[in-house]
Amino acid sequence: MNSTDAGDDTWSTRPRRGRGDKAAAIAHAACGVFGRDGYTRASIDTIAAEAGASTRTLYNHFPGGKAELFRAVMRWSAGQVRDEQLVRLRKHLDPQRPPRPEDLERDLLALARAWVALMTDFRDHFSLVRHIQGEAGHVPAEVLDAWQEAGPRAVGRELALVMAALAEHGLLDVHGDPAQAVSHFMALISTDIVHRSYWGVIPLPREETDRITATGVRAFLRAYGAAR
């Protein structure tokens, strides 16, 4: 395994033996340290200690130091979340089998709740994202871009295709801009939850998240629902 290939999901599944698995141990430790301390405060010494490795070993695997390690961890973590988001998207909204008009709100709500639940299911990842939002000015631009391309942009493109397909079937009116519809959908179903829960650090009661997602889906359909 190439230790700098952050798209390698074997980091989370292989027995830890040999060179590649030492990189996996370092990456897992770094994910926890970055999520806890943020990019600026996290130190190579702390990451190495929590991985049970020397700093020399860490630099052997990640010669670019903290920036390279953070980029690798973010791409790997974002890739895991991206894959799960796409699984949930296809489960609840398959563009090849569009819902009946009377079921569209139900399916959008199921998707919204499944995506909001990711903040609990991938707590370490969203702790990293929370720190990125607060420290963007201190995180190298190429690291931010790598994270966006590995996760949010890739998922956004897939969801835009689904929105376009729903429009083609007469279920939505995306006003010629499915990407904008995606942005509004995500803002309506999750922004309030993200801010109030601090990216899932202090989860809201289930009934409150259910209320917010239901209200968000209804507002989205009022803006983008096809006229009947």
Rank of each mutant, 00 (worst) to 15 (best):
R211S: 10
G20A: 13
V217E: 01
R90C: 05
L108Q: 02
D83C: 00
A114H: 03
G176Y: 07
S183L: 12
P15A: 09
Q85A: 05
R211T: 06
H195K: 11
E50R: 03
R100P: 04
A214K: 08
F34I: 00
A27R: 08
K66T: 02
R90F: 09
N2G: 13
Q85R: 11
R211K: 12
A165N: 13
R222T: 12
E102P: 03
V162I: 08
R71I: 06
I132Q: 11
T213A: 13
A78L: 04
W199P: 09
T55W: 05
E149Y: 05
L86I: 03
L161I: 02
G35S: 01
G151P: 03
V139Y: 13
V73F: 07
E208R: 10
E142T: 03
V194M: 12
A187N: 02
Q85V: 00
G20I: 05
R88I: 05
G7V: 07
A53N: 07
G137Q: 09
E208Y: 04
D103P: 11
A112Y: 10
R100E: 15
M186V: 09
R157Q: 15
L111P: 01
P99D: 04
V201D: 14
A112E: 09
A72M: 12
G65A: 08
R17W: 14
Y39L: 02
H61C: 12
A117D: 03
S127I: 02
A150C: 01
V162L: 07
A150T: 07
L69A: 01
A117T: 02
